[in-house]
């Protein structure tokens, strides 16, 4: 006797919890052949507002932790993703790639998390500096997290793209509000389940599924967002994001002309951590 399918309706990931969309709406996540895999939440602008609020609330505490500790937490996220590797592979395959390709994407996502985890207690030494100045002063620059970062994840590759942009943002002490791939949202949802079981404090990463054409303008214009990562958005519509972000002087991190997500040399770099930090420079008197 065949079992009745368990039909899933996934929810958002906000503040360490899995709330339904305030709007109550969902949309179907389709596979490459357009048959329904599951229903996912259609996040509204109020969900986005709530996500920014909890991200803001979580930011100071996350930034206060040592870089070493943030690295440990990110490493733990990699462990949790590893545990769910089969689920990720199945979900990626449903979007078209072969099993081998899907496996490669999952492995690379895990490796990338581990790689950025290692930078937790090192990037400040690389980007910080004792500046040479003429006078009896020490002049010290140190990178600090910029605050709350809105990340527009790329449509494809959904998992690797999301991980590649989230890890450098979060490792320096920023908190993030992520808009998942609209066409392939399932890996982002499974990723949020991995985050919930890692030791990531509630609110540090928040993942919304929903219509990007509706959410991206609200995210860009939100006065309480410090930076927008537009890599996943691409160049189309970038000017609209930059105009909306200009009112609150929100930094918009532009994508390169073309992105090779699987290429470690162009898609992972400590400079991507620095993109979401502010240099604080301090003058300190020297001498006795």
């Amino acid at each position: 006797m065949s079992r009745v399918d368990v039909r899933k309706t996934y929810k958002l990931y906000v503040g360490g919890a899995f709330p339904r969309s305030e709007s109550g709406r969902t949309y179907p996540a389709l596979d490459a052949a357009d048959s329904v895999l599951a229903n996912v939440a259609d996040g509204s602008r109020k969900d986005l507002r709530d996500a920014v609020r909890v991200a803001r609330g979580a930011q100071a505490g996350w930034a206060e932790r040592s870089g070493y500790n943030r690295g440990q937490v990110l490493y733990r996220v990699a462990e949790m993703v590893e545990d769910r590797a089969d689920t990720f592979v199945d979900q990626i395959r449903a979007s078209g790639p072969t099993r081998a390709q899907a496996k490669r994407e999952v492995d690379r996502s895990i490796d990338r998390l581990v790689w950025y985890a290692g930078w937790g207690d090192k990037f400040a030494q690389v980007f910080g500096n004792l500046n040479p100045v003429q006078g009896a002063f020490f002049n010290i620059s140190a990178p600090e997290p910029t605050g709350v970062v809105g990340i527009v994840s790329p449509e494809e590759p959904a998992l690797l793209g999301l991980v590649s942009r989230m890890a450098p943002v979060v490792i320096s002490g920023n908190t993030a509000v992520l808009l998942a791939s609209e066409r392939w949202p399932l890996t982002a949802i499974t990723f949020s389940e991995a985050l919930a079981t890692a030791d990531l404090p509630a609110g540090v990463v928040n993942i919304l599924t929903g219509r990007k054409d509706k959410l991206v303008p609200v995210l860009s214009a939100h006065m309480d967002v410090n930076a927008i990562d537009a890599w996943g958005n691409g160049w189309q519509g970038l000017d609209a994001i930059e105009i909306a972000a200009a009112d609150s002087v929100t930094r918009v991190v532009r994508p390169p002309r073309s992105i090779e997500w699987a290429d470690d040399r162009s898609s992972q770099s400590p400079h991507m951590i620095a993109d979401f930090t502010e240099l604080k420079t301090v003058w300190h008197p020297k001498g006795l």
Binding site: R45, L48, R49, V52, A221, H222, M223, D224, D247, S248
Partner: peptide, 9 residues
């Protein structure tokens, strides 16, 4: 304005 605000302003 239709834009979500920031208490810092």
């Amino acid at each position: 304005s239709g834009v979500y605000q920031n208490p810092d302003y």
